[in-house]
Design a protein around this nucleic acid. Structure first.
Lengths: 247, 247
DNA sequence: TCGTCCCTCCTAAGTTCCTAGGATGGCGAA
DNA sequence: TTCGCCATCCTAGGAACTTAGGAGGGACGA
């Protein structure tokens, strides 16, 4: 190994310090890619696991792998079958593609998916699982021809991955908030939506808060309007997304 | 400053490496507190901002500040008025209590809240904002009598905070999944709940998927049962929480 | 082959929600 | 003090959801 442990740690802290100053999404991406390059990673992908009915495209936070690769990945719905992604459900600690490829219980088709990456110059990659308390999973995955995957590098990469993810989230949230001009709910509306979110009927909420049912209904309707929702189910989802109520 | 920059970075990377091996919540907490001690922090609190109707107590992820302090904080509902917490909504980058205290526009009552911390041995503290794409905010905040808040320490602390938060989430998710024996939804149920979540009516969903309305209804009912929900609104929230669907 | 799970479809009464109004009093900012 | 926002309450028809059943066909593993 040509780098000392301290080289890794110093770089990592420097990286974080530089990233702290950035708020612009594109600048953050550029800095992340530059840093990963030092480790021998030429590409990076970060996305949250899309649910059914959700396209992978809409879940991607950061990606500079070839467009054709991503298209094929999306087209063949690899995100469901890719063993590297499936591994996310087993473990919550970082691992490399190689770690997965070595497993005995892989089907032939699964091995194919990993190997296809090679055609695009990605011989090995590293997966940093990202969890959120809401239970949704995401991953941050740099890859390249011959990346540094030594233990010390892995520790540094986990920091880089988690911190990058955090910085990207911050930038995306900022952008989201700027885009969505969202009228904030009043405290009462928030309180009532919180009850709606746990499945209480207007009558039950009225009982809990000692107000009339019609009042509850009108608060919900106001909130729906502010949240741009026709149905209260979506209003709740929007309220969660916009941070008006929490899970 | 008695420590070199490299000391910070080396420690930080070591900390992350040690934390990587841990899955037990209590062990993780212990390691975090030990590490923060080195920076001169005697206490640490981490919680997500509770919505109305939610108690702060239920949102705490990690805390070793005196119980009486927390009780008073909760009782007086400081989480709403604490200027240090309010600052979260303005900025998404770390700051110290001192940074907030210096602001001119603070009300007297707000200053009091900060100063009350001193009675419990916390003269200054550091806030690391944690954002999640769902929009919910949380914070990680160590505090102490005379902590190290130098620029280099702040960069290290941000890593420590974000990484600790991530490790805690991992441990809590693991625990949550062990506790909640949750029957997974079928692909079709997930797909339909995803549409429910965006406020589509059963009829609209039936149109979209080219199946009958009654089929949609029965999928929703099955999902509700699996998610232990009486109302579809709550079913959606549960599905999000359990990672069955994403925002 | 048998059992199990998934997806599909059906009925029908009862409950809850949605819509689109209007109206009052309180409270704080300009 | 006036203006605006907030919380409260009201009506009433029509739309959507809830509940508790049953039932057939297909896929897949034991």
């Amino acid at each position: 190994m040509s780098f000392t442990g301290d080289e890794y740690s110093k770089r990592t802290l420097d990286f974080v310090q530089r990233l702290q100053g950035l708020t612009d999404y594109e600048q953050i991406c550029a800095l992340i890619m530059k840093e990963l390059d030092w480790f021998g990673f030429s590409c990076v992908t970060s996305f949250s696991i899309p649910g059914p009915g959700c396209h992978l495209k809409d879940s991607i936070w950061l990606n500079n792998r070839p467009a054709e690769y991503v298209e094929r990945y999306e087209e063949k719905n690899y995100v469901i079958h890719d063993p590297v992604v499936k591994e996310l459900r087993r473990t919550m600690t970082p691992y490399s593609w190689g770690d997965v490829r070595e497993r005995r219980d892989l089907k032939k088709s699964e091995r194919t998916i990993i190997d296809e990456g090679r055609e695009f110059g990605a011989h090995d990659g590293f997966i940093i699982p990202i969890v959120s308390l809401s239970g949704s999973m995401a991953l941050f995955s740099p890859c390249g021809r011959d990346p540094d995957l030594s233990p010390r590098a892995r520790a540094a990469l986990e920091i880089i991955g988690i911190y990058s993810h955090h910085a990207l989230t911050r930038a995306l949230i900022r952008r989201q908030r700027e885009e969505v001009v969202h009228t904030p709910l009043t405290p009462r509306e928030r309180e009532i939506m919180q009850w709606v979110a746990v499945g209480k009927t207007d009558e039950e909420i009225a009982d809990i808060l000692s107000i009339s049912t019609t009042t509850v209904t009108s608060h919900v309707e106001n909130a729906k309007q502010k949240l741009d929702a026709f149905r209260r189910t979506y209003a709740v989802v929007q309220a969660i997304r916009l941070g008006e109520i929490s899970l």
